[in-house]
Design a protein around this nucleic acid. Structure first.
Lengths: 179, 179
DNA sequence: CGGCCCATGTAAATCGTTACATGATTTA
DNA sequence: TAAATCATGTAACGATTTACATGGGCCG
């Protein structure tokens, strides 16, 4: 059982989903391709942590809708209590910035602006997710408690927004350094 | 040539270093174990991008001090101009927070405090690095330009500090949610 | 004396990406 | 008509971690 497997169980604890949907929803916190997810779902099913129903579709390909079993829930709760790994980030841009003095100022500025636009787009998409969560939630977001089904979404989007704002602050600060 | 290889060249563009030192210095931006780095250095040497001198030591094991060659510098500069991959983060804590409602409030609070302490320690160590850079720099940091050798260190530590402050802001905000 | 730091390397296992494979429907 | 979306899966490759291997000096 690796971390991604538990991540899939985490998503399934809220909603039954297909492998395809799980792939999309897990991206922001644990990037993974479908080729990694499908075999793990098969393993999880063999362990009895998830089960699925075939859902034939006429217009689109048939799908398998997975849900968490009682055993899966137990495994998930035990995992939450275990020690948690430190987050890991790999940022090619940071490596380039470290030796940015090797290229000329115009190229450096161009790179920074590109990265800033990347973060701006991210921020927009996070704010859109935020709005979506706001609509789906019964209560106003500020009143959500730990037990509410949208609580996880709410706090993680808040985390993502704070992070991307820090990145944008850094980009703007860097731009002033390259003037 | 993978990203880590270029990362090693990036570090070597500032200083000659051993594989062991490279391993430690690249951690904040591209975590890697020595078992990954030593073979890559051998490859880089075969390609003529780096060269090394044996340095026998009496008290400690002998070492190989690597430096960047002219060809290595050229490869490095070309890489900087190429499109840059988006940063990738994998955060087990985020997955757990998503379904934090599955454990009781006290355990959730304990997890949050642990993570906050982790970030606090990180912040302290970043601020220490900051002081070290300040001492090593000839000019005051605010006056450093792109070409100065400490510029890369300076701006990346600033990036790390902004990030960890955003994380701490989130932790404090989360704590208020669990009251 | 046990464990950490220095310092380099290889081998095995796991994790993750890219490519191969299929195929209907929708959109530009 | 080319590309994207939905939907699942396998195979090959590359990246990363863990474990194996060695050995002196230093600290508590």
């Amino acid at each position: 059982m690796n971390t991604l497997s538990y991540g899939l169980l985490s998503l399934l604890s809220k909603d039954s989903r297909t492998g395809y949907e799980l792939m999309h929803h897990i991206q922001p916190f644990w990037p993974a391709k479908h080729s990694q997810i499908y075999p793990l779902l098969a393993q999880l099913e063999q362990k009895g942590y998830v089960e699925f129903v075939h859902v034939p579709q006429s217009d689109k390909p048939d799908k398998k809708v997975y849900s968490l079993t009682a055993n899966g829930l137990k495994a998930l709760q035990e995992w939450i209590g275990q020690p948690t790994d430190a987050p890991v980030t790999r940022d090619e841009f940071a490596l380039k910035v470290y030796c940015i003095g090797l290229v000329d100022k115009d190229e450096a500025k161009k790179m920074l602006l590109e990265r800033e636009n990347y973060y701006l787009e991210k921020k927009v998409s996070y704010l859109e997710s935020f709005e979506r969560v706001k609509c789906l939630s019964e209560k106003p977001l500020e009143e959500l408690g730990m037990q509410d089904p949208m609580f996880g979404n709410y706090v993680l989007i808040r985390k993502a927004v704070l992070k991307v704002e820090a990145d944008l602050t850094w980009c703007k600060w860097m731009k002033s350094k390259l003037k």
